[in-house]
Design a protein around this nucleic acid. Structure first.
Lengths: 359, 359
DNA sequence: AGTTAGCACTCAGACATTTCAAGTGCTAAA
DNA sequence: TTTAGCACTTGAAATGTCTGAGTGCTAACT
């Protein structure tokens, strides 16, 4: 009997590894528990079903396999998947076609970060067949580094703000005409007084001071500064986009009934998922590798039977977001990993240098 | 027998109307077919269940009611709902609380149109308990009305474009430093040559002409113009946002199993829904009333058993989008209509005058 | 020792059958 | 014209049966 004896990964014989790998890959392919007989006939393993049964029993007691019920085949456990990903998996080479498809599509709508991310998740979802998601992390200290004012006509102007490399704009209208000089005066004033300040650091005395400086056009200050504060506050960054939610339905064994509901709610609430991205990644100055969270490893209980594969997106050394894929634990890991890796890299390059560049 | 005798709405007796109304409201409330007995005991109708049965049989032959199967209660048909909405419904007064909640929440994140729409759908969804959606219509002729260039540092600038009242920006980097004069020269050149042109109207000869005009810095022209074209093309407008997809699951009778899949696919594909918004509304210079599409009335077959309630959003006379709610045909119409009406109005006001204003 | 063949056992899922309750249509009485 | 009563219909739920896939174990085999 021996009861349970976990955490002895070194002692896996070569044949056990081979069997485990075969089981996992068969299960990823079929989505059903896989039995000993299937293995002998479809995967080339040089022993009989009985032997495999023995090995499977051992693998189960080691915690790498599970049995849904007594007379069913085996299913990989989370530990099994983890082992598989860490040491058994064959790395997937994207084909020329795939790379080309990624590249051309990614270029299509590269106007702004949002646009890029949107196309990226669309791509990720359509090419992996899982639900894709992208996050912009919550920023710690949000400040405007540069202000600019554009007069569009007599009584309206556009305030352009550069926040951490992202451009935000805001319309300003006035009931009375605004003089050319007034707007440029306001612009320099904003740059001098407000650049580098967080919303919390913009105080009433500061605003009153600015009103004094503006002289005749002091009435402009209040609405503009208010607007700036709002924009800064609104720019918490924390945003999450999805594509291909309907693909969850391709895996009814996992996302049938209640589960689906949980998942949709998770997507809608966004907060939990944002936390995963933010807490795990953004703070630790980790290297930018592809991260994989399997089932319980996720902090969010809803994702017990799901896997999250994602990779951060950087602009220089700055972390601006992350892109990934979420799906059932039985996921085509090698392909997804390669895909996300490539995509994230592509997006990073795109925002790195806005102008043309080939790879 | 008399067989079927439709389209005789005038001949509805007062009692029939009362019964139909009661049935519809009961069905909206309970979600199940409603029987004669239920009506006599729970709604105050001054006759017995047998009488009601007779009336129901007639209403059914007129096409206002349907019977899922022989021994079930009655369910309103689409024609029934239509009649109800057009002439039977009591209009819903939003409570002070509700109005206040809408107002304060709507103000929160009003930095840009996108932001406003996002909060608006979030609000719509949470306050109606249905899935909310907002669309930005496909623009017919997309042109840039004003260009502006901001130098952020020596070798990078931001190109600001005003497209139909919406601001779009784009980063431009250069490997060699750009002189102050060069950027302002480029700016005036862009405004003179490209404002008012669609992407298709920007031709090669035109670009070459601009390169001549730019003189020494002609290398800037190509990437910038290319970027402008991309931005214009990308700005087809057509965009669709959702909130509260998970609320579909509150109506499992309608969105159970296959149906849910269809619905999610519909949401993901976006195109069909965008068409509904665009074709129906954007072209006909219709008045800005709340529109209601019930079941088959929708062009999209997936929405057979759903209702779409929406209202356009205007900026002045310009149509900039629409906001609405989608849900099961058995929807709390009066409340939803009032809500969407108010919300759309609120959003319109917000973008009308960017600065402060109370209602 | 490790491997294989054979056999009894288990159990979820599919299918058939029964039961139940809700709601109707119709008829006859008020 | 309305109402009470009753026979009838029918989907949904409950129950029972059957089957096949897959296991664990034992005994023979290399």
């Amino acid at each position: 009997m021996e009861s349970e004896k976990r955490s002895a990964p070194k002692e896996l014989s070569e044949r056990k590894k081979q069997i485990l790998k075969a089981i996992i890959e068969a299960h990823i392919e079929l989505g059903e528990p896989v039995g000993s007989k299937y293995l002998t006939s479809n995967k080339h393993i040089a022993c009989s079903s009985a032997t495999i049964r023995n090995e499977m029993a051992e693998l189960e007691s080691m915690g790498y396999l599970e049995q849904p019920h007594t007379s069913a085949g085996r299913v990989p456990s989370e530990a099994g998947y983890r082992l598989y990903i860490d040491s058994l998996i064959d790395s997937y080479r994207l084909t020329e076609r795939e790379i080309e498809e990624l590249r051309t599509n990614l270029r299509k709508k590269q106007a702004e970060l949002d646009g890029i991310l949107d196309t990226a998740i669309r791509l990720a979802s359509s090419m992996t067949d899982y639900t894709a998601l992208a996050a912009k992390p919550r920023k710690v200290r949000v400040t405007v580094s540069h202000f600019d004012i554009i007069r569009t006509d007599e009584r309206s102007m556009i305030l352009v703000m550069l926040i951490g490399g992202i451009v935000k704009t805001r319309q300003i209208r006035s009931r009375v005409p605004i003089a050319e000089e007034a707007s440029s005066k306001l612009e320099t004033l904003l740059n001098r007084k407000l650049s580098g300040l967080t919303a919390a650091e913009i105080t009433m005395p500061l605003m009153m001071e600015m009103e004094r400086d503006m002289g005749a056009e002091d009435y402009l200050v209040e609405p503009v500064v208010k607007g700036i504060c709002e924009t800064i506050s609104a720019f918490d960054g924390g945003e999450l986009r999805f594509d291909g939610i309907d693909r969850l339905l391709s895996y009814p064994e996992v996302y049938g009934g209640e589960r689906l509901r949980d998942m949709l709610t998770l997507f809608e609430r966004k907060q939990d998922l944002l936390d995963v991205f933010s807490e795990t990644e953004m703070q630790t100055g980790d290297d930018g590798a592809v991260k994989i969270y399997i089932g319980r490893e996720n902090l969010v209980k809803t994702m017990d039977n799901s896997t999250l594969v994602y990779k951060p997106i950087k602009r220089g050394d700055l972390l601006v977001g992350a892109i990934g894929v979420i799906g059932p634990t039985r996921m085509n890991y090698s392909r997804v990993i390669a895909m996300i890796d490539h995509l994230s890299r592509g997006v990073s390059n795109l925002i790195e240098d806005g102008d043309e560049r080939s790879d």
